[in-house]
């Protein structure tokens, strides 16, 4: 090992030691304000930690996450629209290919599951897919916010808030209902109404799936002994995996049910 490499290794070791010392010294303060039981209960019910929404109302951290994710996605979309989309080429580059694949994936998904009517469905599952995926990935960024009690809290995935999950589940069902009504009239509406348990099942499936990720990650991070190396596997891989799975599950359920209710009825 030459001198330069040795110096780099020594600097890295010193940085790691300094971070470790910092973590150990500050850990007590972090652990003090709630026990693991309280923390996990709060992750489920959001009873303790609220964030003030423009001084009007105390809201769950999940809603703040939803606003942040939406703002982030819209800013990126505006930048792409202004600087990239006008320069699209017939023979695509890497980023254009990525963008086209992304849009094609949702479009084809909608077309395959609902061949008779898929314009609204394509747009909806594109929005929902982006929201669930990036909302779940957002959990990894560790954005901090100050609660009404004055504690710093990490913003969770928007859909780990039951209100967010209910909103998305119900809206998916509304989209299915409206698709059935527009395509097949009262018969389509009736066909969609038969699956009345769908908004509840969709909402709680999303909520449960996202919450389990949050709970496992919170648990791992809570104990100092588990806070090294393991979060890389548990946090990152688990989050990435369930981001993809939940996106796929919701868009599949919505698209297949939408396809069923918009299928043309045979006249007797």
């Amino acid at each position: 090992m030459n001198k330069k490499n040795r110096a780099v290794v020594i600097v890295w070791i010193l940085v790691i030691v300094a971070v470790l010392v910092g973590i150990i010294l500050t850990n007590k303060q972090q652990e003090k304000h709630e026990t693991v039981k309280e923390m996990m209960r709060d992750a489920v019910l959001h009873e303790a930690n609220h964030i003030s929404f423009l001084g009007i109302k105390d809201i769950n951290p999940g809603l703040v996450s939803a606003f942040v994710v939406t703002a982030g996605l819209l800013i990126v979309a505006v930048l792409i629209r202004i600087f990239f989309i006008p320069r699209l080429k017939r023979i695509p580059g890497k980023f254009q290919l990525f963008l086209e694949e992304l849009v094609s994936f949702f479009h084809k998904f909608a077309k395959t599951n609902s061949p008779h009517s898929n314009r609204l469905l394509g747009a909806y599952i594109f929005g929902a897919g982006m929201y669930i995926f990036w909302g779940t990935i957002f959990e990894l960024t560790g954005f901090q916010a100050i609660s009404t009690k004055g504690h710093a809290i990490t913003l969770p995935a928007p859909l780990s808030d039951i209100n967010g999950a209910i909103a998305l589940g119900s809206l998916s069902y509304l989209v299915i209902l409206s698709g059935g009504l527009l395509k097949n009239g009262i018969k389509g509406l009736g066909s969609a109404l038969k699956d009345f348990s769908m908004p509840v099942s969709m909402s709680f499936r999303l909520f449960g799936a996202l919450l389990s990720g949050v709970l496992v990650t919170e648990l791992v991070y809570y104990y100092i002994g588990l806070s090294f190396i393991l979060p890389i596997l548990v946090g990152v891989l688990f989050t990435l995996l369930h981001a993809v799975i939940q996106t796929y599950v919701l868009i599949t359920l919505t698209a297949s049910t939408y396809g069923e209710v918009t299928e043309p009825r045979e006249k007797k």
Binding site: T70, L73, A77, I80, G122, A123, G127, Y131
Partner: peptide
């Protein structure tokens, strides 16, 4: 929030 996001993504990207 979600409706704004979906509409925005539809108009700007999709």
């Amino acid at each position: 929030n979600f409706l704004i996001l979906t509409l925005g993504l539809y108009l700007l990207l999709y």
